Simulated scan of single mutants.
Amino acid sequence: MNPLTEKQIRASFINTTRRETTQALLPDLTGARWDQLDYLGWRDRKAPLLAYVVLELDAVPTGILLRAGAANQTMVRRKALCAWCRDLANVEAAMYVARRGGSAGRAGNTIGTLVCEDFSCSRNVRRPPTSSEAGTDADLVRQLIVQERIAGLRERATRFVQEVAATL
């Protein structure tokens, strides 16, 4: 992912109001390892049910506002498969819902997905394959597995953002 500025991030949102865009609490970008990110995702520290994702669609930064489902305190937490990185081992996935762009979004239409609660998908797809995933094959096979995971993450995250934007 190419490095982004605060101004580029704020200008990228496609399913927010002007007020939501200006009130968005952005992450600290100073330590971002852009070469290791397939998308930039974060939760709002002041409004923990709000989250944001920015990725590149046709080389243009495109951001969406997501809302996390309110966790029921009495509900038993279970691991779920992240729809983007398809990792189950390290994280819990949470249901995030995005208002669609344009008139459909203004009418209340939304789309949802299960995504890593902490948006760690980029890190998850880059972890070394386990022996059950790659066997005892050479490093080249392990590298190919990681490259396939990265391509799959990019494709699935992009498809979701395209679905949000589909009505624009």
Rank of each mutant, 00 (worst) to 15 (best):
R86V: 11
F119E: 11
G108W: 12
P128W: 15
R123I: 09
T113L: 04
D118V: 10
S131K: 11
N124M: 15
C121F: 04
L88I: 09
A83H: 10
S132M: 13
P129S: 10
V91L: 05
L114S: 12
V125C: 09
V97T: 15
R99D: 04
C116V: 11
W84F: 15
E133Y: 03
P128M: 13
S120K: 04
C85W: 06
L88T: 07
R106P: 00
P129N: 05
N109D: 12
P128H: 12
N124R: 11
R123C: 07
V97G: 01
D118P: 01
V125A: 09
T113K: 07
A94K: 06
A94L: 09
S132I: 06
C121E: 03
A104S: 09
G101M: 03
A83T: 05
V97D: 03
N90V: 04
T130A: 11
S122I: 05
I111N: 01
P128N: 12
C121P: 04
L88G: 10
A98I: 00
V97P: 00
T130C: 03
T130L: 14
S131A: 13
C121K: 05
F119M: 15
R123P: 01
I111V: 12
E133Q: 12
P128S: 15
S131L: 14
A94E: 08
A89G: 06
A104L: 09
N109G: 00
R86Y: 12
R99N: 05
V91P: 00
D87V: 03
E117K: 15
R126Q: 13
C85M: 05
V115I: 08
C116K: 12
S103Y: 04
E117Y: 13
A107I: 02
L88Y: 12
R99P: 00
A93N: 03
N124K: 07
R106H: 05
V91D: 13
E92L: 12
S131G: 07
R106D: 11
S120I: 04
